[in-house]
């Protein structure tokens, strides 16, 4: 019997979440924070949620890492163990017990990272003004902006990599694709659209784009796109997430109407924000391997949708604006306190 990656994933998930075999899993929920916020009125400064905030007790308590006033827009856990924070003022790299600003004034307004699959020491950083590359795990950076078209394509919002290693970039002027680790780029459709996020459904190969005018799908790697808006109550999209454990299922976040879900590859969308109190959705994340949960980072807090539930629960993280979410196995890390 041959398992494809997604189906193997499904089998593993069904084993993990079998109601007859409860398995205790320790995991860390980790969020990048754009705007600092006190957990509760009167909270001591040392309990400020900022930078990269992590919880190892299912959101009951949080500890923060990084710089207190940095606005974290992107987080990269590279396969080498390197941890990078993409901030408005540059890139912070975890080195020993401290954070080092590895960029200078030219590299700022970081929006996204991608690690090149077949050359893990190479990391691309997308910014509001271009593209940078590091070939030494984020210690030094070189400007690749000139490889991009001279227009709003130089504002990169997100990367997604497909199984062939091609990197797609969501930009403020359509999608771009690179087949050589970011050295050259070509158009991949949606020119003129402000593309805020991209996601790839590994099972179907369907590429989905969240834009300022709605959601688009491509089944041919960006050669053509179809608009998908049936049931969407807002077209101001912010983020999109493929549920690779379920065929044709995607979640899309908006700036003003919360989250929408499709289970038919975008033919129809239904609202899916029950329990969410802030409808400006900034990030979505699905944790297939550990909990099966879906997380929503909003402009005012973090929410979680547990398997089998239809109502989102909130985490006690105050009204932070959440830019990114990761869940990974818990590892004791003595440096997780304030640094």
């Amino acid at each position: 019997m041959i398992f494809t990656a997604p189906s193997f994933f499904l089998i593993l998930l069904s084993f993990v979440f079998s109601p007859h075999q409860p398995v205790k899993i320790d995991y860390t929920v980790e969020v990048g924070i754009i705007r600092n916020s006190l957990l509760k009125p009167g909270t001591k400064p040392e309990n400020l949620a900022y930078g990269l905030s992590t919880s190892t007790d299912d959101g009951k308590t949080w500890s923060s890492r990084g710089w207190p006033f940095a606005q974290v827009r992107a987080v990269l856990h590279a396969s080498s163990g390197t941890l990078l924070l993409g901030c408005d003022h540059g890139i912070l790299k975890k080195r020993d017990s401290s954070w080092v600003l590895t960029s200078d004034w030219r590299l700022k307004n970081i929006t996204c990272f991608v690690e090149i699959a077949d050359a893990p020491s190479i990391i691309l950083a997308g910014t509001a003004q271009g593209l940078w590359v590091s070939s030494d795990l984020g210690d030094t950076w070189s400007d690749l902006t000139s490889t991009l078209p001279e227009d709003d394509s130089r504002y990169i919002n997100a990367f997604v990599m497909d199984p062939t290693g091609a990197v797609f970039a969501a930009t403020e002027n359509g999608c771009l694709v690179s087949n050589d680790s970011g050295l050259t780029w070509s158009r991949a459709g949606l020119t003129g659209e402000r593309v805020r996020d991209l996601t790839l459904h590994n099972g179907s190969g369907l590429l989905a784009a969240a834009t300022r005018t709605g959601v688009f799908f491509s089944s041919n790697r960006g050669k053509s796109w179809r608009k998908s808006s049936e049931g969407l109550l807002s077209v101001k999209m912010t983020c999109i997430l493929a549920d690779t454990a379920r065929d044709n299922t995607f979640y899309a976040g908006t700036t003003d109407m919360g989250i929408f879900r499709t289970t038919d590859g975008g033919k129809t969308w239904t609202p899916g924000s029950f329990g969410i109190t802030n409808y400006f959705i900034r990030s979505l994340y699905i944790d297939h391997s550990l909990t099966g949960r879906i997380y929503a980072g909003t402009d005012g807090g973090l929410f979680v949708l547990k398997p089998g539930h239809d109502k989102w629960d909130t985490f006690d993280l105050g009204s932070c604006a959440i830019s990114s979410i990761h869940v990974h196995p818990f590892m004791q890390d003595s440096s997780q306190n304030h640094e």
Binding site: A128, D152, R154, E172, R194
Partner: peptide, 8 residues
Amino acid sequence: GVRYRNTT
């Protein structure tokens, strides 16, 4: 001023 959008 530096433009991030409408850069042309």
